[in-house]
Design a protein around this nucleic acid. Sequence first.
DNA 1: TTTTTATACGGAACATTGTTCCGCTTTGCA
DNA 2: TGCAAAGCGGAACAATGTTCCGTATAAAAA
Lengths: 211, 211
Amino acid sequence: MADHRDALDDGSQSRELPGRRRRADAQRSVDALLLAAKEVFATSGVDAPVREIADKAGVGIGTLYRNFPQRADLVAAVFRREIDACADAAPLLAGKYAPGDALGRWLQRYAAFIATKRGLASVLHSGNPVFNSLPAYFDQRLQPALRSLLDAAVAAGDVRSDIEPDDLLTAVGRLSMQEHRGRPDHAERMVGLLIDGLRYRAGQASDPSSC
Amino acid sequence: MADHRDALDDGSQSRELPGRRRRADAQRSVDALLLAAKEVFATSGVDAPVREIADKAGVGIGTLYRNFPQRADLVAAVFRREIDACADAAPLLAGKYAPGDALGRWLQRYAAFIATKRGLASVLHSGNPVFNSLPAYFDQRLQPALRSLLDAAVAAGDVRSDIEPDDLLTAVGRLSMQEHRGRPDHAERMVGLLIDGLRYRAGQASDPSSC
DNA sequence: TTTTTATACGGAACATTGTTCCGCTTTGCA
DNA sequence: TGCAAAGCGGAACAATGTTCCGTATAAAAA
């Protein structure tokens, strides 16, 4: 794998230095753009005009396009950043709460991330090759994060042991993907239910013959 | 209900006549536009430029906008037409095949309709008020169509009796909504499975205590 | 049939938004 | 401090949704 960088310099702090250092103002621009884009996407949706983002970031459009050759590159970069933030939250929660709690809180955080991403689904199915690597990135970052929480919770006897990270990510994702008719808290409640379900048979192994 | 006509003259043949008849060329334009739009949407997706549609229909852009004040109105009209066609297929199939067969064929036809509608989901969740009435229209037209097939199949002893039209429409819709990784026939096979499932307990009523 | 008139038509023009280009500025290094 | 590479801003271009209006025509009236 490791191809999640194809054709896209998303302008993180990393950069091979072929002689000269990355200029400080360029890094500032990228940071400002990613921050502004995240806010604008949250407010106006992922279809917001690029100019609005450039304005909010306090840079020119040229600068935006220098760092993100296409609009879609900016969108993908913002998603990657938020995926990273979500994955990075796992060890933090693990250090702060009991294993079962940490797992529950992280799943709710993941659900919240999905829920705010109106347009994530459309973007993923848009056919634009820029987004091709996003699903893999999702798995690559989130599965290990969740697995560590899940393993710890199982080891602590807080939750059952017959569930895979992949199942949970998919289920929570689908539950949170789109708001149910007029019930803004629907996803949160359903995910809560799921978490309780995990706790229900804590300590038991899977038993395929039970009905 | 019956409010699925809000703010939208989709230009079907119906029209209250306040003194003068609807001009024949106008009706021709609408027909040509709907036909062209259907084809263009199928080929290039629902994001295709309006000019392309107008050209294919052999009319000017002005004519397009006279009949469909917004792009979205045209999209909605095309969807309504296809929903109608799908619903209307039910009695035809019912007259031609045995009840169980008719049901199965109709479900596959519905699945095919959903499958070709890349962008249907995005459109429905776009927030554009023009599409607000579409989900209701779906239910209003398709549920009765399916119910008649389902009732007939149950009465003939071809399928089980504990399934509601709504459940089936939703399930088939979700199975067909998006192509599974590289398997174009995935939806069709899964829907086939579902139909076999319907047949499996033909003649039996629902029995919640069986395991 | 001819005249009249409301209706419809076509497409130029306008508005919005993604993208490119390039002259000017700033930064990093010697 | 001087200089070259890197970066910046925004005008200009391109694609596309939408509006406007002079012209054409179908339907009704004469």
